[in-house]
Computed example of a mutant assay.
Amino acid sequence: MKKLVITGYRGNELGIFDTNHPGIKIIKTAIEDRLLRMIEEGLEWVLISGQQGVEVWAAEVVLSLKKQGHSVKLSITPPFADFTERLKPEKQAEFQQLRLAADFYQPLTSGGYQGAWQFQERDKFLIRNSEGTLIIYDEEQPASPQFFLKLIHDYRERQPTYYIEQVNSYDLNDTAEQLKWKEGEENGY
């Protein structure tokens, strides 16, 4: 697999409103662990739409891996040009930094929000232009990623080789336990 979409919950859907929330480290670690394996297997591109939450955290992981010397590229394709217009100024600045650091950036449509169809077309575009998806989503906690997941399952009926890796709350709990264990070892416990 050369191109992978990463998506999942928005921060507010997880109750994460602060950039120092401990849950972010857990999610980023889960993403990094999976990306390292996939990069070893030939992954070249990570595709996101730039949505706040899992996608932004995934972009930060990709950029960190690039700084460490891994050959992976970041593509950001928001649904429309004024995608960050309604965000707080600090979130707009954060997104601009990601945009500048990305290897590819191109909004799907020009101008501002025109309708929900833009989000649907964004999702279809990302799926068509990738070979798999890593999605941070748990069906026991329904939220906006359910629509992307449904599109993936529909697409997979026509393209059965399309790869899906879903990270749920149990997987994140395992990652949290591993982090605690690793930190305990580093502190001599």
Rank of each mutant, 00 (worst) to 15 (best):
K2D: 15
K3S: 14
K3E: 13
L4F: 09
V5R: 02
V5H: 07
T7A: 15
G8N: 07
G8C: 10
R10D: 03
R10M: 14
G11F: 12
G11R: 05
G11C: 09
N12C: 11
L14F: 07
G15L: 07
I16V: 13
D18M: 06
T19D: 08
P22A: 11
P22V: 14
I24R: 04
K25L: 15
K25T: 12
I27D: 02
I27Y: 10
K28T: 07
K28A: 13
K28M: 14
T29R: 14
A30I: 01
A30H: 09
I31V: 12
I31T: 06
E32K: 15
E32M: 13
D33Q: 12
R34T: 05
L35Q: 07
L36C: 12
L36A: 07
L43N: 06
L43T: 05
L43S: 07
L43K: 04
E44N: 08
E44R: 06
W45K: 01
L47K: 00
I48F: 00
I48K: 00
S49V: 02
G53L: 06
V54Y: 06
V56F: 10
W57M: 06
A58M: 06
A58V: 03
V62D: 04
V62R: 02
Q68V: 02
G69K: 03
K73A: 15
I76P: 00
T77L: 15
T77E: 04
T77Y: 14
T77G: 11
P78D: 00
P79I: 10
A81D: 06
A81M: 08
A81E: 12
T84E: 11
E85D: 12
E85F: 15
R86M: 11
L87T: 01
L87S: 10
E90T: 03
K91C: 04
Q92I: 08
A93V: 04
E94C: 05
F95C: 07
Q97I: 04
L98A: 05
L98D: 00
R99D: 00
R99P: 03
L100R: 05
L100Y: 04
A101I: 04
D103P: 04
F104I: 01
F104D: 02
Y105I: 01
Q106D: 01
P107H: 01
P107Y: 00
T109Y: 14
G112M: 04
W117Y: 15
W117E: 12
D123Y: 01
D123T: 08
D123G: 12
D123E: 12
L126Q: 11
L126K: 03
I127E: 01
R128N: 13
S130R: 03
S130L: 08
S130Y: 04
E131M: 05
E131V: 03
G132I: 08
T133P: 01
T133K: 01
T133I: 13
L134Q: 06
L134F: 13
I135K: 07
Y137K: 12
Y137N: 09
Q141P: 06
P142K: 05
A143I: 05
A143H: 10
S144A: 14
P145D: 03
F148Y: 14
K150I: 09
K150R: 13
L151T: 04
I152R: 02
I152H: 05
H153T: 09
R158G: 11
Y162R: 04
Y163F: 15
I164E: 09
I164M: 12
E165T: 02
Q166E: 09
S169K: 14
L172H: 09
A176T: 00
E177K: 13
L179C: 08
L179R: 03
K180H: 11
K180Q: 09
W181A: 11
K182F: 11
E183L: 15
E186F: 14
